[in-house]
Nucleic acid binder design. Structure first.
Lengths: 211, 211
DNA sequence: CATCTCAACTATGTATACATAGGGCTTGTT
DNA sequence: AACAAGCCCTATGTATACATAGTTGAGATG
């Protein structure tokens, strides 16, 4: 594996998991020492992060970890609504019913995954990720998938702005199940509407519990 | 200005204007000689182009100008519909009526801009760009604007796949005028619908006249 | 004659040295 | 004491040298 890829993966993970907080200066020299590679791969990694929007040029000199705050939340969800509603619509037109019926079943029982034993909700988020992947595959649109991928980076970051509580997660799982069912039924309008409802609930919850 | 920025701008323009055709190998050494800079800024430029989707890694070694074909057209327009309809909706809710009424007037008379004297339709496309910019400004959503910006790069490239004829451009100008008017009136549903109609017409035209 | 293997060359990945610009600190003057 | 100006330091921008991997071509063997 290339050193620049390792540096990129490390920094990306550090930013997404808030080990590097917004506003942190990403100095080339400091990073090259910390990650034990020369400045060249570090520069490459920083360029990729900046292209993704995880870091920003700082007034012409150096880059900093980009801000993510409540102001960005509503903007982020406007884009999310546009992309995910369209994706749900197209998926409903092109889906394999078997796949989405199976996901519907799993999501309907997702309440069991949310236990005190798993404080990070890794199982739950993995299942939600499976739905996303299935939608992406059904849509089969390279450009739409790319836009969604870019968006999800920021959504993962924003998750840390609020405490997720078990009640909301169980509701969210039910909403996901409703989306999967509408797609399985091949009903674009309902799939899009269910997505709109889910996103509105998610945004309200995030705004109400944000720290 | 930084050498890497110049290299990036030059290459970007060359790709968008089809001076570098899809599939062309972008060798670092060759480019550094042609543009008279060292490989370092060239690498930076290629990384940005690849992040934008204008070039792609070629099986692990080197990058090539990315393909753009009729297959991509329909995918591109699905994403475009999602983003531009949402943008039109939000613009209608947040617009300054004066600005969009003025654009409506200009677009209504845009037929005069399409003359034999201007084979590149520079004036027409500039006016269309003004509408895009006004919508972006009215929406005021950083993430949505960024997604639209990334999309437009590919749209400009795709334009060359077809011959634009004056009749279609005059129709397109009328459709743009309708969008501007709906936004000026503050009617999100109509703005979105007018955008849907416009995009459908554009896509049909592109597909029918493609070379 | 075709195919496989080895070697050499070329292009990319990485490191480092050098140039340069911008910011901060210190000092002097008002 | 405060503000401005100049110098120094540090971090980024660029160039280049070196390492390495992949590809291509040539030669030998079946």
């Amino acid at each position: 594996m290339r050193a620049s890829d390792r540096a990129y993966a490390t920094l990306r993970s550090d930013i997404i998991n808030w080990r590097l907080t917004p506003g942190t200066v990403l100095g080339e020299v400091e990073l090259s020492e910390r990650l034990s590679v020369s400045r060249t791969p570090i520069r490459e990694a920083l360029a990729k992060l900046t292209a993704e929007g995880l870091s920003e040029p700082q007034s012409g000199r150096g880059v900093v970890v980009s801000e993510i705050s409540l102001d960005h939340l509503e903007e982020l969800f406007e884009l999310r609504a546009a992309l995910e509603c369209k994706a749900a619509e197209l998926a409903a037109q092109r889906r394999d019913p078997v796949i989405f019926l199976a996901l519907y079943e799993k999501l309907s029982n997702a309440g069991e995954l949310i236990t005190a034993q798993d404080p990070d909700r890794a199982d739950y988020y993995q299942l939600a990720g499976e739905l996303d992947s299935a939608v992406d595959a059904a849509v089969g649109n390279h450009y739409l998938n790319l836009a969604l991928k870019n968006l999800r980076v920021h959504l993962v970051r924003v998750r840390r702005l609020s405490k997720d509580n078990p009640v909301r997660l169980r509701d969210a799982a039910r909403e996901h199940a409703a989306i999967a069912l509408a797609i399985a039924h091949g009903n674009p309008a309902v799939a899009s509407a269910a997505t709109t409802v889910h996103l509105d609930n998610s945004l309200r919850h995030l705004l109400s519990t944000a720290s």
